[in-house]
Amino acid sequence: MNIYVLLKRTFDTEEKIVVSDGRIEDESAEYIINPYDEYAVEEAIKQRDEHGGEVTVVTVGDEESEKQLRTALAMGADKAVLINTEDDVEDGDQYTTAKILESFFEDKEADLILAGNVAIDEASGQVGPRLAESLGINYVTTITALEIDGESANIDKDVEGDVEKIETALPVLVTCQQGLNEPRYPSLPGIMKAKKKPLEELEIDDLDLDEDDVEAKTETIDIFLPPEKEAGKVLEGEIDDQVKELISLLKNDAKVL
């Protein structure tokens, strides 16, 4: 089976976001594999171990993204592709990424493409579905189970806490939700072997694309942090009085009743 994973390098979840001059400061930030994409890498490895084939991890990013690709290789992926847009794309959006990936996948015969449900940075959840649309293949988002049997895939899809059972045919693109699996730690021998695994680097030129072809369809107007939470108020006194005060506050101050 020909398995592909779409991977994004994102801010570490423990990183504090600092905004200055309308930009997020990323100078000293730590980066990780987008946690939802880790589920995708894990699932790809499991499916390959069960059905055979090869796992290729693809990212659209810059030089630094190699670290996250190497980590995926250390977990057990076979090959990695870095589509480096550092010199060609200034402010890409989901359209940009999907368009680049569309060109990349044109001559690939993918049986299964896995992506994260969303990236934790911008959380659009669009790249996977857009890519599937443009490739003309089936897609299922937020999956929590995947069974492949020959040419068909049986999938559990998380729908706001409920489960939808879906049967579909390969090739298929899925986006992975928490609960699908428990991503493994890359083992030490895995880490050492990762440096010998193939990592191909491409630019959009190699995919016969121009800067104009992938120009963002959206424009970011402003970036700001949510207002700081104000200190809460603890009511005191007899319970009956507290209840009365609470109702009055909810009615008159908060105006929610």
């Binding site: 670290k67 980590t71 030490l188 880490i191 050492m192 440096k195």
Partner: peptide, 14 residues
């Protein structure tokens, strides 16, 4: 090196 960084990260998480 990349490997040393990955080992550091993996062992720290573990």
């Amino acid at each position: 090196t990349k490997e040393q960084t990955m080992i550091q990260k993996m062992v720290r998480e573990f």
